[in-house]
Design a protein around this nucleic acid. Structure first.
Lengths: 110, 110
DNA sequence: ATTTTATGTCGTATGTTTACGTCATTAAAC
DNA sequence: GTTTAATGACGTAAACATACGACATAAAAT
């Protein structure tokens, strides 16, 4: 494959799909939930909370960071992670708008 | 691996992750959007709407059907697909509840 | 009864994700 | 200055997803 097939679709669908993909693993959802609740969100704490190896958790954290849902701030040896509230708000809006679109139009019912 | 790691997480997170996974491909989102708008939602029409092979579209349709987001009703040679409005409503609620949970709690801001 | 049409199923190649051990780096503690 | 601790980067095996051609099936049209 020389180009990605996903690029053939509308930009807005691509963006929603990208965010959905990040949310498509329970470990990442658990990390988001934990970050929403904790005060001290050090990487090590997150690892203790998630039943996967440190390496795997780190990988999930990088993925969340990549799409902007969390931020990591280095503090000496440790790294403090936290939710990016504006990114989460954007994501929420994107999802809700799409789902509204699906329900508003009066399509054939089964 | 003898068991799936995803099973180690809360049931509610597993369900949200499953739905997010289904929404993680723009072709499936495009199918949902098309079904929301069309009156006649015959499989062939959907295939014409999506820039992928008939086989691949069929595969995406099966996936949407598997999680219950769409229904297919055989009508002679053709198959009429349509959105499952109750499933979509459930999905919407699941997502919104989770995303609310992320924003409501006052976590550390970056 | 053959042919055509609409659709699904199977096999399979290629690409992506998940999971984790090992190694590297750098700060802090001693 | 060594050692310990926290983290990220690298390599890689196994599982899973994507994409599609070829074949199968069964209704409809001829």
């Amino acid at each position: 494959m020389t180009y990605k097939k996903t690029e053939l679709f509308d930009k807005d669908l691509q963006r929603i799909a990208e965010i959905a993909k990040v949310m498509s693993h329970p470990a990442r959802l658990a990390i988001l939930r934990y970050l929403a609740n904790c005060k001290t969100c050090i990487s090590g704490d997150i690892t203790n909370e998630i039943p996967l190896s440190r390496t795997t958790v780190s990988q999930h954290l990088q993925e969340l960071k990549r799409v902007g849902l969390i931020h990591g701030e280095i503090d000496g040896l440790k790294v403090n992670y936290c939710l990016c509230n504006t990114c989460i708000a954007d994501m929420k809006k994107g999802f809700i708008d799409f789902l509204e679109e699906l329900s508003v139009v009066d399509s054939i019912k089964c």
